[in-house]
Design a binder for these strands. Structure first.
Lengths: 193, 193
DNA sequence: GCTATTCTGGACTATATAGTCCAATACTCC
DNA sequence: GGAGTATTGGACTATATAGTCCAGAATAGC
């Protein structure tokens, strides 16, 4: 042990994630990241090892933060359709209010990452997979409770909802109109009937 | 009149669009665009007026190219559900084959553009609106033919399908697995029943 | 062929960028 | 308090970038 860090690695990563989320990877410079975290270049490079590594870690961090908060909403003791309706309504609220106008970080990364960046795409894929798994779990339980049709394909539903939310949030970035988004959500939820 | 251009403006724009689509806006340099088009910087700047303008014009060009090809598929003399199934199947094929792995140019732009770039976002919004209008038109006609339920909300359906396709193509970029994509599409199409 | 006019190659500028490096610093353990 | 060690600030490098500029080239009209 010797001189201790003057910053909290977790907080710094949070700030990095936030900036990459808002501005995008390519449009964010290392100087920007230093400014956002208050770290010097040395500390940033020593701790995280460069811009690209920060992206990968930010993606993972986003997933770790986002998955439980989604799971919490779906764990409410209400019918699964209501639970998803609440989740989607929250997305709409955030988009309309402005805070959700930067889209989903995973979605932004998926769109911006070059096709050849397999490592980064794998992180994003894993993140989407985590969401999908949470959805599936909620759907399986709901099916066991008899809330879904017996022939309902919970795998397919989970995948559809995952993609649907990406579409919703993407459209919301460009067209943050409540009526439009509510149309999308209402139609989406009909798959649960 | 004097010295004529040595290149075709339309072809050059096409090549620009292609590169911006594949690589993204921020990751593409003006030198890259010169190389892709074969134009010198002078010609590029004189003709199009800089990188940002090229983006806006590329978005418009993409919409002009894409909308009719979608409309053509939906104009086939088959039930609207089959027509949409064919459209979505084509997207899946392109994704799985690889050519569709770069996503939708509009979607990529929506994701990458900063929230504050209102002009560019407006071009993207208009592009999505064109797709939505084509969808709506096909749905309205189908409804008149009695293919949809009398209470079907064609506006909402068109919006939902527009967003759903964005979600599908985004997910496809990260996870180009036919089974996953077919699950998404199958569930999506149920809104037309 | 001559001239006016537009186009083209590529040099040029000023700035931004990712990443490296080291001396100075601040702390812990003994 | 001394020695060892990890951290920090910030200078530094080499390269890339968006956009400007102009001299020379190529053409149409006469």
């Amino acid at each position: 042990m010797a001189r201790p860090r003057e910053f909290d690695e977790d907080i710094a990563l949070e700030q990095v994630m936030d900036l990459l989320w808002t501005r995008g990877y390519e449009a964010t410079s290392v100087d920007d990241l230093c400014a956002a975290t208050g770290l010097s270049r040395s500390s940033l490079y020593a701790t995280f090892g460069g811009k690209r590594n920060l992206l990968l870690r930010s993606v993972d961090r986003y997933v770790e933060r986002r998955t439980p908060s989604i799971a919490a909403i779906l764990a409410r003791p209400v019918p699964v359709r209501e639970a998803f309706a609440a989740l989607l309504a929250e997305f709409i609220d955030q988009i309309v209010a402005g805070s959700g106008r930067r889209g989903c970080f995973l979605g932004n990364c998926a769109a911006e990452l070059p096709r050849g960046d397999r490592a980064a795409l794998a992180h994003v894929r894993q993140g989407l997979g985590r969401t999908e798994a949470v959805f599936r779990e909620a759907l399986v339980q709901a099916k066991a409770r008899g809330e879904l049709q017996p022939k309902a394909d919970t795998d397919a539903l989970a995948r559809f909802l995952t993609a649907g939310i990406q579409g919703l949030r993407l459209v919301g970035k460009v067209n943050p109109d409540r009526g439009t988004l509510e149309d999308i959500v209402a139609t989406m939820l009909r798959c649960l009937d």
